[in-house]
Amino acid sequence: MDFDFLSDTMGKLLAGVPMTLELALISTTAGAVLAVLLAVARAAFVPAAWFVRGYVYVLRGTPLLLQIFLIYYGLGQFAWVRDTILWPFLRQPYWCAILALTINTAAYGAEIIRGGLQSVPAGAVEAGRAAGMPRLLLYRRIILPIAIRQALPAYGNEIITMVKATSLASIVTLMELSGIAYSIISETYRALEVFLCAGTIYLVITFVLTRAVAGVETWLNPHLRASRT
């Protein structure tokens, strides 16, 4: 095995890690906020329910790569889009990728949170109402804390999926981890070695994330962790 090539490749690939993490972090954070809003709107606000269902249906029923292309190549076709103040962002592959990843993960996240909302015991909500909690307080103190705890394991998987999905940003020219891997492969044609290096980096990232999510889960659920006395 050619260790010089491996370490050289590893070095080049590691330079792409910050962008991979950046894309994942920004889009999962913004996506999670959007997901909670969508799920709550669907549960609590009847006219919004149809919109949210349509949103989730379209975003989950179509490939992410196509969504990225639609935003990156499709929107610029219209002069009026090019005239908006958003154009400086929408012309950059970086922001297009983040936008696409965000709206995509929000759709999956909204469904996960919806499942969490459905699992909130009716009794807990009723006790809140009986104590005179207004709707917003009820959501903030009772419903969302329970729903998010329920949704966390599934949401952890979604975060991992998003880290992997950032690789698609390389197809719109971003030089994150997969983009660099592609460029090294196409220069050297040593796909196996590059795959080994890039794969290892992704595995380390996903492993750390899995542990982190599990840690947050334990931390948030002392009532499940503790044994019955």
Binding site: P121, G123, A124, E126, A127, G128, R129, A130, A131, G132, M133, P134, R135, I142, P145, I146, R149, L220, N221, H223
Partner: peptide
Amino acid sequence: AHQVNRLRASLGFVFQNFNLWAHMT
């Protein structure tokens, strides 16, 4: 709704199934 919440907060209700909030001590 404000009146209802204010009046609810002036009563104590005890449920058959306790309905404690499981995520709180």
